[in-house]
């Protein structure tokens, strides 16, 4: 799950990080915004159920929808643990 600050919310951390990249010589950085990633392992094989549960989790706790948006991606078990 990816949680991002809403576009209308200023992200001073992102601005600072973007400036640091500029200082390193990456001149093409037009903007940078920082977000959060939650890797959640669910005990289900049903992608639809997984998406429902993750969406509920985002609304209940993982994102504050006043300031953040969230995006749920359901991936099959990677097996590389």
């Amino acid at each position: 799950m990816v949680v991002r600050l809403r576009a209308e919310v200023l992200d001073p951390q992102g601005v600072t990080i973007g400036k640091a990249l500029e200082h390193l010589g990456y001149d093409n950085v037009a903007s940078l915004r920082q977000g959060k990633v939650f890797d959640v392992e669910l005990q289900t094989d049903d992608p639809a159920q997984a998406e429902r549960e993750l969406t509920a989790m985002a609304k209940a706790l993982l994102a504050n929808t006043v300031t953040e948006t969230f995006e749920v991606r359901v991936l099959p078990e990677s097996g590389d643990d």
């Binding site: 001073p12 600072t16 006043v66 300031t67």
Partner: peptide, 11 residues
């Protein structure tokens, strides 16, 4: 209460 508290503008 409505709204949210973000990081201070000056970080």
């Amino acid at each position: 209460l409505p709204g949210a508290l973000l990081a201070n503008a000056g970080l």
